[in-house]
Design a protein around this nucleic acid. Sequence first.
DNA 1: CTTTCAGCCTGACGGC
DNA 2: TGCCGTCAGGCTGAAA
Length: 268
Amino acid sequence: MPELPEVETTLRGVAPHIVDQFIDQLRVHNGSLRWPVTRGISELAKGQRVVAITRRAKYLLVELERGTMMIHLGMSGSLRLVDRAAPRRKHDHIEMLMTNGVCLRYHDPRRFGAWLWSDSGFPQLDHLGPEPLTDEFTGKRLFELSRKRKMAIKPFIMDNRTVVGVGNIYASEALFRGGIRPDRAAGRVSLKRYEQLTVHIKEVLTSAITQGGTTLRDFVNGNGEPGYFQQTLMVYGRGGQPCVTCAKPLKDIRLGQRSSVFCPACQR
DNA sequence: CTTTCAGCCTGACGGC
DNA sequence: TGCCGTCAGGCTGAAA
């Protein structure tokens, strides 16, 4: 599932082919996504130049001369650059054809994603916390925000108001590296441990982006499998298997309706 | 205010 | 073989 590293990888792969190009056609084959695709978006986008593509949290923002398109990949979405003559696959819901011949296809089996247009901002972006890979994201911030909070630390760091872009995979991995149990109350973690945790979060995200980038050369050919899936995951998806550190079996619990794997011996 | 939880959706997988 | 139930999960908004 796309987490922040995959969204960032997608941005870097797509931007050089799209920015400064003109939209020839925006075809919506199935506009029934997380929110209905903006009515009339094809007419709104047609002929416009793409001024820039940026990312905020897991949202991609395609800035046009007038208005912005906001794309989210949801749980199962992907954006691929393909030859416009390539046959459309099942679940290819939207395609953006550029006048330079490039074709960007939005593919999303579960349709949890989004593709919206607005010229007055998006409310989804209004209450987001800092980007994890900036200096705004500090252990001090986590410590202060968490005081008197009884919520478990894992859902706390996955809350977009705390910090954006930390999904289930990287929350699990960072907590393992930090030696913190995912079900520990957020308010009962010291400043020192929060400072260490922010370093681990930045490291796992950065390393995943680096590895995601290794598949970028294949992007245009449609081999969209992101490289970071190959990275060694120490706890995520490994419930019952031995801990890489102490070999005791990893425990799998549910926190906030999400599976959470951890080592009861190494994480406290 | 904080916290929990249903719902959105399809594909993969296990049991029978 | 195929049918059925369960699980996966980001995000929102309503309920507690």
